[in-house]
Amino acid sequence: PTPPYLKWAESLHSLLDDQDGIHLFRTFLGQEDRADMLDFWFACSGFRKLDSREGSEEKKVKLAKAIYRKYILDNGGIVSRQIKAATKSFIRDCVLKLHVDPAMFEQAQTEIQTLMEGNSYPLFLKSDVYLEYT
């Protein structure tokens, strides 16, 4: 079978579908103080899944607020700096109006994913962290 680290080079999704891959990519991002991008990406996925799995409305609101406060509100944070202003104000409005929707972080997640695919991910595949592992 193909070793996992070769699969990681196929696509960002292959990498993020493997625990070791996630761990190594997170280490790499951490070196550049960008690990929040990955955490945010997973937080968005988890938030979307919450809808069908469990969760009172109260819990969803609390989680949406937590994601907003941690990653969006702080303008100096890596996630906040990378997301478009319009996307941020859309999320802000959802939180302020307590209008939480499973898809409310989708656009922001896509923006972060596009950045990772175009930048951090190809750099990761050339990084010492990855090469030493292989």
Binding site: D18, F42, A43, R53, K62, K65
Partner: peptide, 20 residues
């Protein structure tokens, strides 16, 4: 009731793949 940080951490973990 979980704190916001706990809730966030659980949410992140829930989205990650399970061990091979």
């Amino acid at each position: 009731m979980d704190s916001e940080d706990d809730l966030l951490q659980k949410c992140i973990t829930s989205a990650m793949p399970k061990q091979r």
